[in-house]
Amino acid sequence: MGTPKLSLEGVRKRFGSKVVLDGVDLEVYPGESVVVMGGSGTGKSVMLKCVLGLIQPDSGRILLDGRDITHLRGREREQLLRRFGMLFQGGALFDSLRVWRNVSFGLMSAQRMSKRDARARAVDILAKVGLGPDVGDLRPAELSGGMQKRVALARAIATNPEIIFFDEPTAGLDPIMADVINKLIIERVRDLGATALTITHDMASARKIADRIGMLHAGKIIWAGPVAEIDRSGNPYVEQFIHGRAEGPITMAVRRQ
């Protein structure tokens, strides 16, 4: 399949004495949609943040198109991040800015697009996530949870990123809105020809979005395979997780990372 778009090699991270990532190995190929699932507090978010450089891993390498990006900082990191899009779990919309300014933030701030162009682009992108131009003038606080997720999705895709991260895209949404978001993610990612990496514990969402699924447990990817094989993985951890059983090899962590 050639060079992976993104690969993690033995990424480790601990906070104090708590080991969160214990040698994560993961490869994501160009144009592929990979979902990493795992229980709450298994370090899924930490993994994404290591790739984005929001957290520095203790050891291991992170490669983008075969180039080591683990320790990029400053301007180089900024340049790199322009190729990424990220949908945060809570949306993380800037509540001091109107919706259209949120959506076009990357265009105006990093790409120095003019206000008028940025506004026109914001309206286009909002339309792609099913929102009318009138929404652009609202404040994020005036939107419902599902609408905020759509705006956050619009912001994540606004700069036409090559690789997009989705952090629990369906968390806190009703099943119908969750499906709407899943559909939007699939469509927009296909549109852009982007590579997608999603972390979630929502199995319905994972089955829908993923080409390949990986299971993160105790700081390692313990199983990975095509989405079609998830039901016959033969892995007791995966079995327990996809069927949502309380009994099994996985015991829930009490403390969050």
Partner: peptide, 21 residues
């Protein structure tokens, strides 16, 4: 509030330095 709602992380991922912004 921006920190705990990940807005500062979001700034960084939008290639904007939070110290400057």
């Amino acid at each position: 509030t921006m920190r705990v709602t990940e807005q500062i992380d979001a700034l960084t991922t939008l290639a904007t330095n939070p110290f400057r912004y």
